[in-house]
């Protein structure tokens, strides 16, 4: 499980960290502003968001890793604050169901097409 989550996390880093954003901006984009209906901390100008921005900047300067900062915040505010849903027992279905459905859909499609070709011959 750990290997899998490592792969997923590294994949996440590749897919999300496009461009010149520094680490801080990236972290702020992945945090939910709890008081503003679904905006990210990065996008929000609320008081709460400004505080979290400063705290994250401080922690980054202290040399904490991205993961440690996410851990710190989710410890205080719950997983609700993390927009990049961590892979845990309660989110296995969320992360794997799409792949299962994709394969299932593909299988149904394949069988259907195959069945139809055979009938012609």
């Amino acid at each position: 499980m750990r290997v899998l989550s490592l792969i997923i996390i590294s994949f996440l880093i590749i897919t999300i960290s496009y461009g010149n954003e520094s680490k801080t901006y990236k972290i702020l984009k992945n945090l939910r502003c709890l008081v503003c209906q679904g905006q990210t901390i990065s996008d929000s100008n609320s008081d709460f968001a400004l505080t979290i921005k400063e705290v994250v900047t401080e922690k980054v300067n202290e040399g904490l890793s991205e993961k440690e900062i996410y851990y710190f915040l989710s410890d205080k505010y719950g997983d609700w604050i993390l927009f990049n849903t961590p892979l845990k027992k309660n989110s296995y279905l969320l992360w794997f169901m799409p792949y299962v459905l994709f394969i299932l859909g593909g299988a149904i499609l394949y069988i259907m097409i195959k069945k139809r070709t055979e009938k012609i011959k």
Binding site: T15, T40, D79, L82, N84, T85, N90, L94
Partner: peptide, 25 residues
């Protein structure tokens, strides 16, 4: 998913852009 999880277990999680980007891209 977050709605179902919250209703069935009371746990609150957020699903945001990183999830969709990761799965769909």
């Amino acid at each position: 998913y977050p709605v179902f999880l919250d209703t069935l277990t009371g746990q609150k999680i957020s699903v945001g852009p990183p999830y969709y980007n990761f799965i769909l891209a």
